[in-house]
């Protein structure tokens, strides 16, 4: 990244203390809802991830240009068993549809990423790269009971054979459209649109409550 770009980015990035993430007002409730132990499950928000919407076909020049600009190849899709590429803790790309992807960088380096520059990577080519950093937030559900909590509302088969770590899907969580991204065996990221974050957190906390008590023996 050149010095010029850095200056340009800093100019285009909002001051951090003026930002309010979609689930910020529920931080306390999320902390209170945490469950420890063998049936544990925890929920937190990963706010302000850089997110870019990409419309491009992976094999086409636009797809290659987008992948080069972001530094991560575009995933081949569920039929090829590849719905996420890159590093889930750093830059990665989630497959949405055959020509639609979400590039994500969750580590809070918003100010250091040249969003405008990447948006311009398709100059002279078809397709689209759009800043969507405000569009969705990331909720992270962690722990041995995370899958059971998600299953209360998620239609996707979350069994590790069908949805291993490194898989992602666009689906419904209860009545909310969301992207679910399993980053590790017991770590699920849920990406609802910002306006649905409040409901989604309440839905998940509600589903977590039973794991704080004793397990029902069948």
């Amino acid at each position: 990244m050149t010095a010029d770009q850095t200056t340009a980015d800093q100019a285009s990035a909002p001051p951090a203390d003026l930002r309010r993430s979609p689930a910020a007002h529920l931080t306390e409730q999320m902390r209170a809802g945490d469950v420890d132990g063998p049936r544990g499950v925890r929920l937190r928000e990963i706010p302000f991830a850089v997110q870019l919407g990409i419309r491009a076909e992976p094999g086409a020049p636009s797809g290659r240009a987008a992948a080069e600009a972001w530094g991560v190849g575009l995933p081949a899709g569920p039929r090829a068993g590849e719905t996420v590429t890159g590093d889930p803790e750093g830059r990665h790309v989630i497959w949405i549809s055959p020509d639609e992807f979400l590039a994500v960088e969750p580590s809070g380096l918003a100010g250091l990423i040249d969003v405008r520059g990447i948006e311009g990577a398709l100059d002279g080519m078809p397709g689209q790269i759009v800043d969507l950093s405000g569009n969705r937030t990331i909720l992270e559900l962690t722990g041995p009971s995370a899958r059971s909590v998600l299953e209360k509302g998620c239609h996707v088969d979350l069994h590790p054979r069908a949805f291993p770590a490194g898989a992602a899907a666009s689906t419904l969580l209860g009545p909310v459209q969301a992207i679910v991204h399993r980053t590790r065996e017991d770590v699920f990221r849920i990406l609802p649109r910002a306006s649905f974050a409040d409901y989604t957190v309440r839905w998940l906390l509600d589903g977590m409550a039973e794991f704080a008590g004793e397990e029902l023996i069948r």
Binding site: R55, P126, Q128, V130, D131, L132, G134, N135, R193, S195
Partner: peptide, 13 residues
């Protein structure tokens, strides 16, 4: 047609 669409409703306040 060379067009592509993305919903940005929630990108903006």
């Amino acid at each position: 047609l060379d067009v592509a669409f993305t919903s940005v409703t929630e990108q903006w306040s």
